[in-house]
């Protein structure tokens, strides 16, 4: 009985601790620090938003200074980890200011041990590429694109894990 109680407490503590922080398993992995983030203009990013392979791509537009983005980032990390075997890939497109890449973005990625691929989108003429990425996007962050070949859905909203997973499930099968 006591043993049962202890294991229950342990599980509860584990679940609770996972809620807010980065999943524990990532901490046990060898932490590979990154030193650079690839900077792309829209023309260079575009091919990553319209791949025609078998994978389902979850593309999140975010920035380290965007509090709601940072809050939902662990859900994208979790989706990337849990659905990796189901051919799902997460891409994090940062809209941080170029001058803050080394002072904010890279330290953030390393500190939180972000596993998904991060690229920086650095381009002016936002009017053109915001409309090209999705006609309904007002330009507010965070925003998310899920696509599989030519099936695409765009979300100008924040996600919790369950909502994100439900949206992703529409692309599975």
């Amino acid at each position: 009985m006591i043993q049962k109680f202890i294991s229950f407490t342990l599980i509860a503590a584990f679940l609770f601790s996972c809620k807010k922080e980065i999943p524990k398993e990532t901490l046990t992995k060898e932490i590979a620090k990154i030193a650079t983030v690839k900077s792309l203009n829209y023309q260079q990013l575009k091919p990553l938003l319209e791949k025609q392979d078998d994978k389902i791509y979850v593309v999140n537009f975010w920035a380290t200074w965007c509090a709601p983005c940072v809050k939902e980032l662990p859900y994208f990390e979790k989706i990337g980890a849990e659905y990796k075997s189901k051919n799902v890939e997460v891409l994090l497109v940062s809209l941080d200011f170029p001058k803050q890449v080394s002072t904010k973005l890279i330290p953030f990625i390393n500190k939180n041990n972000i596993q998904s691929e991060v690229v920086l989108l650095d381009d002016f003429n936002e009017d053109i590429w915001i409309k090209a990425i999705d006609a309904t996007w007002s330009g507010a962050l965070p925003a998310t694109l899920i696509y599989h070949k030519n099936k695409r859905k765009f979300y100008e909203q924040t996600f919790d894990y369950e909502t994100l997973e439900n949206e992703l499930k529409q692309f599975l099968n």
Binding site: E126, D127, S138, G139
Partner: peptide, 13 residues
Amino acid sequence: EKTETKAIGCTIK
């Protein structure tokens, strides 16, 4: 000429 344009911004909190 251009009545509607877009730019990146922060969501209203």
